[in-house]
């Protein structure tokens, strides 16, 4: 059954500062959406708010997955419902082995009723699946024995996010600049990897400043965010246009939001 991730008139503030001021977006399973916009326009804020980061407070509007309101659900419950965020800046968890962490994550996602201390996915099965998935993503199996993101390079951390995406197979995946900081081979691996993963079962929201990921994963929709709002929606050609010409034209077309951007900067200073 096709489920929808629905964002309606979403307002989000961090501390006392309003960042998102009315975002509307619908992603269906099987669709690829690109979200673009200048630095500081609020893309990551949207991603965090969707995932349920407690620092990002929703003051108005709502988020639904398949008709289920996410308002009262914490990040863990959202994840078990099928939402996934590949973080722009993944954290390090020293002393926790990648393999142990992934086994725990998989066990919870695949058995959303699981409580702490209950059965984990059988070791042998997990190992096989982990090895195969790492092979597909050209990752050295040595990574599984390291501590989560501890001492990983920027690119390695991003690959770790993709590995988790591949293992957890969410209904909706948000990729927050997963293509930044990767060398060109890695961008290709990640892009191809995503192309393989995203089928009719997965809705994808790609936040990016680059072209490559979108070349391999052509979006049906491209959204442009400016000062906390989605101001334009187009198809793949809009993404190409923005890559070539930047945001000057967009700002001209939306002087009101562009003015807000300046104000925010002044406030920030």
């Amino acid at each position: 059954m096709n489920s929808v991730l629905k964002i309606e008139d979403l307002h989000v503030k961090v501390g006392e500062t309003p960042i998102l001021t009315g975002v509307n977006l619908e992603v269906k399973q099987g669709e690829i959406h690109a979200l673009m916009g200048p630095n500081g326009s609020g893309k990551s804020t949207l991603a965090y708010a969707l995932m349920g980061h407690p620092k990002y407070e929703i003051t108005q509007g709502k988020i639904e997955i398949g008709g289920v309101d996410l308002a009262e659900l914490d990040a863990c419950e959202r994840a078990r419902l099928g939402l996934f965020l590949a973080f722009q800046y993944p954290v390090t968890i020293p002393g926790v082995k990648v393999a142990d962490f992934l086994r725990l994550a998989i066990s919870n996602i695949r058995n959303p009723e699981r409580k702490e201390g209950e059965n984990l996915m059988p070791m042998r099965e997990f190992r096989t699946e982990l090895r195969e998935t790492m092979d597909q993503l050209n990752m050295d199996s040595e990574f599984a024995r390291r501590y989560l993101n501890d001492g990983f390079s920027g690119g390695e951390k991003k690959r770790m996010e993709i590995l988790q995406l591949a293992l957890l197979k969410p209904k909706f995946a948000i990729l927050d600049e997963t293509d930044s900081g990767l060398d060109s081979d890695a961008v290709r691996v990640v892009s191809e990897g995503l192309a393989k993963l995203s089928g009719p079962e997965m809705g994808v929201l790609i936040i990016t400043h680059h072209e490559r990921l979108l070349e391999y994963n052509e979006p049906q929709f491209t959204h442009v965010m400016l000062a906390g709002k989605i101001v334009e929606t187009g198809d793949a050609s809009l993404a190409r246009e923005l890559h070539e010409n930047g945001y000057t034209e967009v700002r001209k077309r939306h002087p009101e939001e562009a003015a807000l951007e300046d104000k925010q900067e002044v406030v920030a200073k």
Partner: peptide, 19 residues
């Protein structure tokens, strides 16, 4: 981060302490 991978707050805490 742990919670976004389906790990409950308590279990996340335990994982982090063990780490």
């Amino acid at each position: 981060y742990c919670m976004s991978r389906g790990v409950s707050r308590d279990e996340a805490m335990h994982v982090i302490v063990e780490g």
